[in-house]
């Protein structure tokens, strides 16, 4: 059973992620979960799209497919349907998944193909220098929202639930233990598992929003997260939940019909 370090492609280090970036944390939690699963490296394929998040596939020791912007899930569909014996893990980001790849996202969830999709949501286009994304909070600054973002945001976890994924959770880079456990649960659950990770981008998001220090951003993610069980209780009680918060925890775990199961 390969250890976490064996899951890394050592000759690709150093990575391109900025100092303080949250993507390394998410990658590490994913590889820890793969190791905990007892998966074999040669039975596993990592697929990714374009953006900071999607560079993660290239740092894994396994076969990996770094594809085009937004299309990772469509490529992964081909890999998994042609060869269901593979463990397929997709790395994507908020722009890659919900803007240019939105159509593929809802259809992959609908098909409920047996794979694990990990979205590193840093609320910004990091690779291109910090433009607003469909997940940039209202009022937040970016290079394309110089007066504060005006558009309503996507709730990716709720979208995945509505579209039919069998397992959906959201955590942050602060919640390392919960995130690792959740990814493992996702890997164990037949069907499409969607794990959204709120991740810090001090370089592009933080610098525009008075969160320049990585720790400031991680604390921001911690302080603005609210357990989904608590959120639902407050909603039931008719309490007002600040719209700057986001729910974390397990959104759904169910057994809708699945495609691409191992034969």
């Amino acid at each position: 059973m390969p250890s976490v370090s064996e899951w890394y492609r050592a000759d690709r280090m150093p990575h391109i992620f900025c100092t303080g970036c949250g993507n390394g944390t998410v990658l590490n939690c994913t590889l820890q979960a793969a190791s905990d699963m007892g998966w074999e490296i040669d039975d596993t394929v990592f697929v990714s799209g374009i953006g900071c998040s999607s560079r993660a596939s290239g740092y894994t020791a396994a076969d990996s497919l770094h594809t085009t912007h937004g299309r990772a899930l469509a490529f992964a569909t081909g890999v998994k349907m042609a060869h269901p014996e593979f463990n397929v893990v997709v790395f994507t980001g908020d722009g890659d998944l919900s803007a240019i790849g939105g159509n593929h996202f809802i259809h992959a969830c609908r098909r409920n193909i047996d794979m694990t999709v990990i979205c590193m949501n840093n609320m910004i286009y990091g690779m291109t220098g910090g433009q607003g994304s469909p997940c940039t909070p209202r009022g937040a600054f970016s290079t394309t929202t110089p007066y504060g973002a005006q558009e309503p945001t996507f709730d990716l976890a709720e979208l995945a639930v509505a579209a039919g994924a069998n397992y959906v959770s959201r955590w942050t880079t602060y919640h390392v233990k919960q995130l690792t456990d959740s990814i493992k649960t996702g890997m164990e659950t037949p069907g499409l598992s969607f794990i959204e990770t709120m991740s810090q981008c001090p370089t592009s998001y933080g610098r525009k929003n008075k969160l320049r220090q990585p720790l400031d951003m991680i604390e921001y993610l911690r302080d603005h997260s609210i357990l989904i069980s608590k959120k639902r209780r407050l909603e039931a009680e008719g309490k007002v939940i600040p719209d700057t918060t986001f729910a974390v925890g397990e959104f759904v775990r169910r057994s809708r019909p699945v495609m691409g199961l191992k034969r």
Partner: peptide, 26 residues
């Protein structure tokens, strides 16, 4: 073999490239 009707033509060509990397003619 596998037939899959994708959500659009971008997804169609993506899926056959993914399938091809598993060694299948697509």
């Amino acid at each position: 073999g596998v037939f899959i009707q994708m959500e659009d033509e971008i997804a169609s060509i993506s899926s056959i490239i993914g399938a091809s990397w598993t060694g299948v003619k697509a």
